[in-house]
């Protein structure tokens, strides 16, 4: 399966989806006005990854500095696809990074964690 890589902009994150390595990375800012448009290829890729036989272990790195409410639903869609991967007896861990003292970003991660049936690891980035 072809990897998908999207370069970040001031309003959209860097995305690296690599089926060979079983690695999913979303980093940077996610504050576009139209998030559905941005996340569509990401969600489609994950749908394919999930159905075409994912790696035994998928490592997910979410390291967002900011995200808007328009993105929040799309990020949940991303996680729901990964939940599907997890359900089929594969190991999936979501590593949720937040900057030191950024309690809002930690809480946002915990909000997702409480909605989803998938392991989360909260990781503080120290200065």
């Amino acid at each position: 399966m072809e990897p998908l890589s999207i370069e970040g902009t001031p309003k959209t994150p860097t995305v690296i989806l690599d089926a060979e390595k079983g690695k999913i990375e979303i980093k940077g800012r996610s504050i576009p006005e139209n998030s559905i448009e941005f996340y569509k290829p990401v969600v489609d890729w994950l749908e394919k990854y999930s159905s075409e036989g994912p790696k035994k272990t998928t490592e997910v790195i979410i390291q967002l500095e900011y995200f808007n409410t328009s993105s929040s639903k799309c990020i949940l869609d991303v996680f729901k696809k990964l939940e599907g991967v997890h359900k089929n007896d594969n190991e999936v861990v979501i590593n949720w990074y937040y900057e030191e003292d950024d309690e809002d970003m930690l809480e946002a991660g915990e909000d997702y964690q409480s909605i989803l049936k998938i392991p989360f690891k909260m990781i503080e980035i120290e200065d």
């Binding site: 139209n34 998030s35 559905i36 448009e37 808007n68 409410t69 328009s70 929040s72 639903k73 949940l76 809480e107 909000d111 409480s114 909605i115």
Partner: peptide, 26 residues
Amino acid sequence: LKSLYKLILNNEEFSDKGGGGLGMID
């Protein structure tokens, strides 16, 4: 507010314009 946010995030269909007042809650 946290519960309402999660409820809307998880349950409601919303458009690209956001919706359900998630922006205001946030």
